[in-house]
Nucleic acid binder design. Sequence first.
DNA 1: CTTGACTCGGTACCTACCAACAGGGTTTAC
DNA 2: GTAAACCCTGTTGGTAGGTACCGAGTCAAG
Lengths: 135, 135
Amino acid sequence: MMPLRSKQLAERSGVNLQTIRYYQEIGLLPEPPRSAAGYRRFPPDTVRRIRFIKRAQELGFALAEVKELLALQVQTGATCADVRHRANAKIADIEAKIRDLRWMMNALERLAASCSGAGPVGNCPILDYFDEKES
Amino acid sequence: MMPLRSKQLAERSGVNLQTIRYYQEIGLLPEPPRSAAGYRRFPPDTVRRIRFIKRAQELGFALAEVKELLALQVQTGATCADVRHRANAKIADIEAKIRDLRWMMNALERLAASCSGAGPVGNCPILDYFDEKES
DNA sequence: CTTGACTCGGTACCTACCAACAGGGTTTAC
DNA sequence: GTAAACCCTGTTGGTAGGTACCGAGTCAAG
């Protein structure tokens, strides 16, 4: 297979062209060789690497964490337990986020329920909550 | 009451000094009068305004949205229904986020369960999922 | 030989701040 | 009156994860 240019890589892996450059800039993609005119020539399996990144991102991993996972993948001596540990930590993160969001939603629902929706904004219980004097 | 200097305002409202200046910069706080030496002199009720902002933020409103809420508060003709509408939209946002996070968590839990934790990283089902060839 | 599509690096923008800096201002104790 | 201690000011740059635009260079087809 021929090496890919930036746009081809972007199209085949389903991301924006600038995303490719961004990933390269932050070291998620190795520095590719260049053509005589300076064009990037990516090895075709880079498509797979980008899909790896996107899939890990979908499950909540930040790019810095994805970088670690990619490093783990080729690191001799890395074990399955290392990966599982990261997955479990991420699960705990997500649980905490969900708890926060549920608390927000609950509070908002109670406020919305206490607001009849009639009348001017002066006695709105929602704004009153935001504007309470005491802490 | 005497007007407050930046740091006093920051301390009394429980935010960082730079946050005060940031809020002023983006128009969330009105431009305060200055002392002869150029020091900001905030009216004491600014503390209350910042607490408003912080409370709305806690319930998931972005600063731009908080700005709208603050504008609504003093806008003649604004109704309680306007506020409730915003609250309901925010509830829908949060619901969508929770759904996404639950999907992530589910997927991660299934992957973590499929991973024994034993052995090298080569056959890790978690990394395999990220690294699958087919889309 | 020109046109259009592509590529390059660089920069700026978004959110919601935080940190560090230089150069002054003010207050308090002695 | 002066020195230490602390405060203020604006400016710059950083964070994550990109998106978007710019002028200039390159390449292939007609």
